[in-house]
């Protein structure tokens, strides 16, 4: 039996194409306008004003009148602390991007294989994504990586007969362990979900055919899963990189002390925040110039992302 034409439900009214188009437009603007307005007011207007401020001597004012041209840019590019902050970002990205990528992919693959409690485990790993960076940073700082003898990590160390470590003190590089583990815990679940979505797009018949041809688990992963996940992998890599650029909350809340923010482990956003509003400084001209430099760098990476994604799409 072949299905017949679907009957129009009783009571349904005929609507002309023009009426429908008008209705769609109305709904479109109803939904889009608030967010567009928010975007204009809270993103594009400040961005444009920052661009303007970056060419002025704007200490303690948002309406400066002394034009300095590219002076703020040349100052920043010659500033050792700003260059150090870019190095800090690179060091952070070198740790966090591959580690989160590998862990997220690993978790996604594991959860694809299990048949019981799959939804529970997905939720459990995703849950930290909902936790505030500030709250998590305080827990990490005050509980796990407290440098005092009674900190959790130090209690474990001393119970093993080892010396306690001043995790966040800066005379060693242990603070990276705290910073990287915190961000890994917070974001691994989100990227795991992206990978699961990517894995679901792969035709299972490919795996069956490969198995029949004698391909082992590693061969199937390397020859089927990894290449077909390429668009997801590129997107995840870029998102991780951008997020690394925007690192602020966990750094600031874990390392800032009554004495101020230490000179080590300052990612660019923390450094620019300190210049613009921190510790009595209020140099919005240099802070804005730094923001523009960062925006430019992110735009370059976005361009590269688009190129890489298009390569992935071609294949």
């Amino acid at each position: 039996m072949t299905p017949g034409p679907v009957a129009r439900p009783e009571g349904a009214t005929h609507r002309s194409g023009a009426t429908l188009a008008r209705s769609n437009r109305r709904w479109f603007w109803l939904f889009v306008t608030p967010f567009l307005a928010g975007l204009l007011v809270f993103v594009y207007a400040p961005l444009l004003w920052s661009l303007c401020l970056s060419f002025f001597d704007a200490r303690n004012t948002v309406t400066p009148n002394r034009f300095v041209g590219l002076g703020n840019y040349t100052y920043l590019l010659a500033d050792r602390l700003f260059v150090d902050s870019m190095v800090t970002f690179i060091a952070f990205a070198v740790f966090i991007v591959p580690l989160t990528f590998a862990c997220s992919l690993g978790l996604a693959l594991l959860l694809q294989r299990i048949t019981v409690l799959r939804a529970f485990f997905r939720s459990a790993f995703f849950l930290p994504t909902a936790v505030s960076y500030v709250i998590a940073a305080m827990v990490w700082r005050m509980t796990f990586f407290n440098g005092a003898r009674f900190g959790l990590a130090n209690t474990l160390l001393t119970s093993l007969g080892l010396e306690p470590i001043n995790w966040l003190g800066g005379e060693n590089s242990w603070y990276w362990l705290a910073l990287v583990s915190l961000r890994l815990w917070l974001q691994v679940g989100f990227y795991m979900i992206l990978f699961i979505a990517g894995l679901n797009q792969i035709d299972p018949q490919l795996y069956e055919a490969a198995s029949l041809d004698g391909a082992g688990a590693w061969r199937r992963f390397w020859s089927i899963t990894f290449p077909l996940l390429r668009p997801t992998s590129v997107a995840v890599s870029m998102l991780l990189l951008f997020n690394a650029f925007q690192a602020f909350d966990e750094f600031y809340n874990m390392l800032n002390t009554v004495g101020g923010y230490p000179p080590y482990a300052r990612p660019p956003l923390v450094y620019l925040y300190l210049i613009s509003f921190g510790g009595g400084l209020q140099d919005l001209g240099i802070g804005s110039a730094g923001t523009m430099i960062l925006t430019l760098v992110i735009l370059v990476f976005s361009f590269l992302q688009n190129r890489l994604l298009s390569i992935g799409a071609d294949r």
Partner: peptide, 19 residues
Amino acid sequence: WTPASSEAYSTAVSNVIKS
């Protein structure tokens, strides 16, 4: 002794003591 001066000095102190 402006905040910028304080920042430059305390960075030097930290680098000498800690690093």
